[in-house]
Amino acid sequence: MSEFFQATVLLGLLTAGVRLATPFLFAGLGEMLSQRSGVLNLGVEGIMLIGAFVSFFVAFESGNLYLGLLAAILAGAFMGLLTAFVSVTMKAVQGISGIGIHILGLGLSGLFFRLTMGSISTMRGFPRLAIPILKDIPVLGRVLFNQNWMVYAALLLVPISWAVIYKTTFGLKVRSVGENPHAADSLGISVTRVRYICVVIGSIMASIAGAFLTIGQHEAAFVNNIAAGRGFIAVALVYFAKWNPLGVLAGAFLFSMIDAFQLRIQIIDIGIPYEIPVMLPYIVTIVVLALSTRGRVLGPTALTKPFVRGVHT
């Protein structure tokens, strides 16, 4: 057991936790923005898969990782427009249409992978980018400042999201549309426009989260269903976070650190069935969620409710 507390192992744990949290941060912050505007996008997982495939395929064919990322952004925007059209314009029941988007993403990513690549290939993804000076800070430097640039971008998006939501006019519009779209509409805010923007941005971030799973790895590869449920965890984290970017950060880190911990607790073989460590991140997240009822913050009032002028749902 003592070996577990060696500095290298603990550093490895923390570094892995930050790395594991990155897709949750991208997808969770994007989903939070979407939900803040009143749209539940359950298709995050499918959009992640699209982003994972498109980014890898374009990067593999072009040899340019940034072109792959750009393709993921465009694919995410397209999926966002599709989601918004179904949920906002056509006013479909969001939970059901989200499942449809998920299945579409799962199927399309697998189908295009089969048609274009045919077999698993690998390539070099984004390398680690140590930040000068900061990387030399004891512990923190290795954990936070010796990752690849997508990890830094995800972390930077937390304060940016917070500032956008709480300190900008756009953020105020988003919150008002999510809380009371009829009041927002009466003030001249286009509910449809705001919701489209939020869903598209959220979907782009989900797609980037998918890209992190492929070209965001030092040795990049795409395999079918590579997201493996991470999109749904990101949706759950938004509820855990009480629709606050700092909460998304806390939730993503909590889940990922415990996940990194369970991966390591297994290998020191303390005599417990492996299923228990595997369940640990989910158990702890549920317990924290259950215990945090005090001061409960309810979600956006108009979440999942389509907007029809003059009709209160």
Binding site: L213, R230, A260, Q266, D269
Partner: peptide
């Protein structure tokens, strides 16, 4: 060192486990 991801198909989790 013997450990399990709990999944047959989660490549990212398997990658992290190998890193561990």
């Amino acid at each position: 060192l013997e450990s399990y991801t709990g999944s047959f198909g989660d490549n990212i989790q398997a990658k992290e486990m190998a890193e561990a």
